[in-house]
Design a protein around this nucleic acid. Structure first.
Lengths: 155, 155
DNA sequence: CGAACATTGTACGTCGCCATACAATATGTG
DNA sequence: CACATATTGTATGGCGACGTACAATGTTCG
């Protein structure tokens, strides 16, 4: 598949770094999803699993913020993971509105497999890209994010 | 909006450059969409408009490849732009299966406005990021795309 | 305390995209 | 030419995410 997007003389004036970035993001999701398919997880589910494994029981709103998706969507993600017995909802003793999403034993085992998959994939993705280059990439993107947020606020 | 994603001590092991990239991509779309909302266009529509303005009448399959979305989706995008009189479908004299999507006069005018919006936004996004940094970013992302494609094919 | 206000999780409708299946048409091969 | 195969655009169903509205609960402040 994918004969696309690294082309001849295209790149209209406004299809430049930004659209390269968009295309790359699409591929990131695609690559992770492809590898995680063996575990019957998508990137969002795997992220959630990883998060609660590492940081412990977490409210859905916090999860939403950290994973960068809406509170509504987190609910259904948790629903599915819960249905598979990978996480469980515990009442928060301090706030009866919130569910604390916690990892289960089965979830912990799967999360370990996710970690393996992730490490392998990350290693592949680093191929031919030096450490400083990766750091530079991260730095520029962070800066770009700041600019994007300003631009959005200014709209 | 957006109190999110530039955090304290999070970043689980597998939420690193990749997820920064994903978050940035989301913001790119959000920023462009916010600016283009004044023209009642989203990023995809604007991209299509810009493409046919610059490269002339184009088959839908080519458009799909260049914009990085599926052929099915391109159809509905064209439908809407056509309904607004911004593009038109011309039969291809050489192949009766294909529609050549061409810009209209109204479309050309709107595309010019898109260009203005785009230039302004791009200038804002460049703020604090040097030319070499942008080029480095583009290079690393291109390399990353190659690795991603290999990883996907290998899955 | 009680009344306003804020926050949490959920329900619901919408949007953009994908994957699949399909009819119409082209292209290649015997 | 006839037949298999490929390609184009479309219809359809599904998925993941969003935004809005809401009931339940918490918090603040008179």
């Amino acid at each position: 598949m994918s004969s696309l997007t690294t082309h001849e003389l295209d790149a209209p004036p406004w299809q430049r770094v930004e659209s390269t970035l968009m295309a790359t993001a699409r591929l990131v999701r695609e690559a992770f999803d492809a590898r995680l398919a063996a575990l019957d997880l998508n990137l969002t589910q795997a992220s959630l699993l990883g998060y609660v494994t590492e940081f412990g029981a977490t409210s859905q709103t916090r999860l939403a913020d950290h994973l960068g998706i809406g509170r509504a969507q987190i609910g259904s993600v948790v629903d599915r993971l819960q249905a598979r017995g990978l996480v469980e909802r515990q009442p928060d003793p301090n706030d009866r509105r919130v569910w604390l999403v916690a990892i289960t034993e089965a979830g912990r085992e799967l999360a370990a497999q996710v970690n393996d998959v992730d490490e392998v994939l990350r290693a592949e993705l680093r191929h031919g890209i030096g450490r400083e280059e990766r750091q530079a990439l991260a730095w520029v993107m962070t800066r770009l994010q700041q600019n994007l947020r300003s631009a959005i606020d200014r709209s």
